[in-house]
């Protein structure tokens, strides 16, 4: 990174303010669509922080995978589960929120104390490598070859598993008469509510 020190500090401040504000928005907004778009903002800010840390390949991978794939996947899930429902109020919910905020604040103060008190023994001279992509590729194909192949296996398993979990189960022989008005819905197995008063176990047996 060939930027001056002041430019790096200012851009780090801007990126961290963007990241923390968008993350708070993700957690605190009522509307979940706003949360999903702000999540994209968090991911882009984190990609900027990676560039400040001399990690250009990981930054590009972050933009491609998180913003391009995971965020779009979350938006699709929100559209598929698009149901305006007002959640039933839980008694004394503010106690939960307050205690959770207390625990999270305590955890953050502990972590900050640890970070600030520890004498980090950094090496004096930092030599950034010429091309991080070359080095990461060498790591992938020499000493991290087995985790690399296992990651591809994991991706295949996740692909097949999510297709298996989320597919609709068709009913093959369901012929509709010609003259009858066909209702506009996808052919799907009729929805069986599970765990209705504990008498639903026989719906799985057929």
């Amino acid at each position: 990174m060939n930027l001056a020190e002041g430019v790096q500090i200012v851009s780090l401040g801007l990126l961290s303010v963007m990241m923390l504000g968008a993350a708070l928005g993700v957690v605190l907004f009522e509307n979940i669509v706003y949360s999903a778009f702000l999540l994209g903002g968090v991911f882009i800010s984190i990609a900027g922080i990676y560039i400040l840390l001399n990690a250009d390949f990981v930054s590009a991978a972050q933009v491609l995978i998180y913003v391009g794939a995971v965020n779009v996947l979350i938006l699709f899930a929100i559209m598929l589960v698009n149901k305006r429902e007002d959640f039933a109020p839980v008694t004394r919910q503010w106690v939960r929120k307050a205690s959770t905020a207390l625990v999270c604040g305590g955890l953050f103060s502990l972590l900050a104390l640890m970070v600030l008190r520890t004498p980090w023994s950094l090496p004096a001279t930092q030599t950034a490598p010429a091309s991080t992509t070359l080095l990461i590729g060498e790591h992938f194909f020499s000493d991290y070859l087995l985790p690399f192949e296992l990651a591809s296996l994991l991706l295949l398993m996740a692909l097949i598993g999510s297709v298996m979990l989320a597919r609709r189960e068709f009913i093959p022989e369901q012929t509709t008469p010609e003259d009858k008005q066909v209702p506009l819905q996808l052919p799907e197995r009729p929805r069986q509510p599970i765990a209705l008063a504990g008498s639903s176990s026989k719906s799985w047996t057929n």
Partner: peptide, 26 residues
């Protein structure tokens, strides 16, 4: 800074996170 092994681990974490997001959403 010379041999960037932390970035390799970060790429693995990104891979596992993508798989986790797909399975969790399904």
């Amino acid at each position: 800074g010379a041999s960037i092994k932390g970035q390799v681990f970060a790429v693995f974490v990104i891979t596992v996170a993508a798989a986790e997001a797909a399975v969790g959403l399904s």
